[in-house]
Design a protein around this nucleic acid. Structure first.
Length: 592
RNA sequence: CGGGGUGUAGCGCAGCUUGGUAGCGCACUCGCUUUGGGAGCGAGGGGCCGCAGGUUCAAAUCCUGUCACCCCGACCA
């Protein structure tokens, strides 16, 4: 393959686009890979298409290697299909909806579980047909509340999604493992630095669920890794351990709880200041100093059962130096919805005094109360006294209040302790490249996907669901590999193997570059030839911006019978005799 | 949904305070020179100044409304 820059549909930009913040967005636009059309919607230009095609090729090969077969569904889907699964309503504003000329409702598919399931249901009916794995590479549409970072979170994006269909749980395990292995090969081949982390299983329920994350500061997902063992998890799914339970779990060594006047202390910071101004001698704790971590903060939320109209209040108790992580809570409460309660909700329950809520009364008020595991049995706290301007001290869990249960609610911090081995966890950001999870039978049950077993009885199929963000992978790779000068593609995805750059006005250089390019092409090397009439500076800058892994400069060295071979990633340059140029470049490409 | 910001040529920006022929850099076209780190000189093409209404002899500029887009936050009790 020979691409000539003189005719390539490409215009590089000298300035960063004003709306681009993250490096991948900036560089993909500057390098002429993508152009913005609307928020979260991008056009792909020839170089971008080349990168996409390379990624898809790797994905197809690895899907084939586990026996998954490619299909292709429409993006335009009639409403009835999504209504059957309940997602016409559940998806809410994230769904692109439209109507045809007759007024029938359609949607642009945000994902294709329904169509996969229905297709299989329509074709297969015997246990002899299974197991089965199907996949597609398809454009998805999600009307994101806030698209960002170019192609990292778009409203239109390409995704490889696949599903496994098995008769048994063991079969699902095997299908899941096969996909997981295939994903490891895919991301390794593409040149990613990635981590596999535990994840929440998402809207469809199900059990085992793991994400493939590319660690990078621009990532939208936060995950933790244990500094000691191999535990890693998305913060939405992470489990941490609290301090060991107090030996005195009845709290008998603590002073009896006492209500204090703490005027104008609606926030934790003002409360701590106030506490430290009080005299604690009377309680046998002379000179006692308090910190935010000694207070118990009670956050009012509300939950709603799926399909229900009514919201119910839920109060969650966490140490005062911690924030509540709503996403993490939502992951555990799934499919129950959870959101923060507003002023109106609080007003509806007069027992809850904003800013001074304590757990002592909650049982009486019949408000459900859960605490984070950091609030251990027997621990003593300063918390609200359920009266304006008053707090209570020495409030002991197990003595003065009993929560209805525990739930991991706090925002995870660097240094929190691993639930497996107790070692400190490290926190980092990453981009979700892929997700594998065991869907189970919920979906098949909803659509009646069964197979007739050998005994003549129907068996409900169990499914696995697996996704790879193709367009996102382009941006994620750019994020992980770029440098000051521009993009630096790993070989497997680069739009070309070698960029041949003739410089100078000497026609001999151009002729020599043409010859070398032609010979490389004949060896199967993909060559980008900069045959433009531009100055050397322009050509060098563009070559570095575009990120082709090997750059071959044919110019002034020709007088001495050499050309210059540059490695884009390391910046290493070396002269090679003209006669060896082709073999040297070829060796770079093949890794020889 | 809340907060902040921006809409002027394909891209990046100035002009707006104090109304008076719409500008600069890059990119693009032509000519000459130049060719190892985003060349120089000269001559050009390209604009609904987001949209609508108002004030005015006159609006990119002032007023009102509206739309779009970008960034941050979707929690601090």
């Amino acid at each position: 393959m020979l691409l000539r820059m003189s005719t390539l549909f490409l215009r590089t930009l000298r300035d960063d686009p004003a709306d681009a913040e993250v490096p991948s967005h900036r560089l993909l636009v500057r390098g002429g890979y993508i152009r913005r059309v609307a928020p979260g919607i991008y056009s792909w230009l020839p170089l971008g298409i080349a990168v996409l095609a390379n990624i898809e090729k790797v994905v197809r090969e690895e899907m084939a290697s586990i026996g998954s077969q490619e299909v292709h569904f429409p993006a335009l889907i009639p409403r009835e299909i999504f209504q059957a699964s309940g997602r016409w309503a559940d998806y809410g504003d994230s769904l692109f909806r439209l109507a045809d000329r007759k007024g029938n409702d359609y949607l642009l598919g945000p994902t294709h579980e329904e169509l996969f399931t229905l297709l299989v249901k329509g074709e297969y009916s015997s246990y002899k047909d299974y197991p089965l794995s199907l996949y597609q590479i398809q454009t998805k549409y999600r009307d994101e509340a806030r698209p960002r970072a170019g192609v990292l979170r778009g409203r239109e994006f390409i995704m490889k999604d696949s599903y496994s269909f098995d008769l048994t749980d063991e079969g699902l395990q095997q299908s899941y493992q096969a996909h997981r292995d295939a994903y490891e090969r895919i991301f390794s081949r593409l040149g990613f630095d990635y981590r596999i982390v535990f994840a929440v299983s998402g809207a469809m329920g199900g059990s085992a669920s793991e994400e493939f994350l590319a660690p990078t500061p621009s990532g939208e997902d936060t995950f933790v890794q244990c500094t000691n063992c191999d535990y890693a998890a998305n913060t939405e799914a992470v489990e941490i351990v609290g301090p060991p339970a107090a030996e005195d779990s009845a709290g008998s060594s603590q002073p009896a709880s006492v209500v204090l006047d703490t005027p104008d202390t609606p926030t934790i910071a003002t409360l701590v200041d106030c506490l430290n101004g009080l005299d604690w001698a009377a309680y046998g704790q002379d000179g006692r100093q308090f910190a935010a971590a000694d207070t118990l903060k009670n956050v009012v939320l509300k939950t709603r059962q799926p399909g229900a109209d009514k919201w119910e209040l839920l109060v969650v108790g966490v140490p005062g130096d911690r924030e509540v992580d709503l996403k993490r809570l939502a992951g555990q409460l799934e499919p129950v919805e959870v959101v923060q309660a507003d002023e109106k909700d609080l007003a509806a329950e007069p027992g809850l005094v904003k800013g001074y809520i304590g757990p002592q009364l909650l049982a009486e008020l019949k408000v459900r109360y859960l605490v984070d595991p950091l609030v251990v049995e027997g621990s003593a706290w300063v918390t609200g006294a359920n009266e304006p301007g008053k707090h209570a001290a020495f409030v002991v869990r197990g003595r003065d209040f009993d929560p209805d249960g525990e739930i991991g609610a706090v925002e995870i911090r660097d240094g929190d302790r691993c639930a497996r081995c107790g070692s400190p966890l490290q926190i980092a950001r990453g981009i979700e490249l892929g997700h594998v999870f065991q869907l189970g039978r919920k979906f098949a049950e909803a659509f009646g996907l069964t197979a007739l077993g050998p005994d003549g009885k129907p068996v409900t199929i169990t499914m696995g669901s697996y996704g790879v963000g193709i367009t996102r992978a382009v941006a994620a790779l750019a994020e992980q590999t770029y440098d000051e000068a521009g993009l630096v593609w790993p070989r497997a995805v680069a739009p070309a193997d070698v960029q041949v750059v003739p410089t100078g006005k000497d026609v001999a250089a151009v002729a020599e570059a043409e010859r070398i390019a032609a010979e490389l092409v004949s060896l199967g090397v993909r060559v980008l030839l900069d045959d433009r009439k531009a100055s050397p500076g322009v050509k060098f800058k563009d070559a570095e911006l575009l990120g082709v892994p090997t750059i071959l400069v044919v110019g002034r060295g020709l007088d001495d019978g050499v050309v210059e071979l540059r490695d884009r990633k390391s910046g290493e340059r070396r002269d090679v005799p003209v006669g060896d140029a082709v073999s040297a470049a070829h060796a770079e490409v093949t890794g020889g």
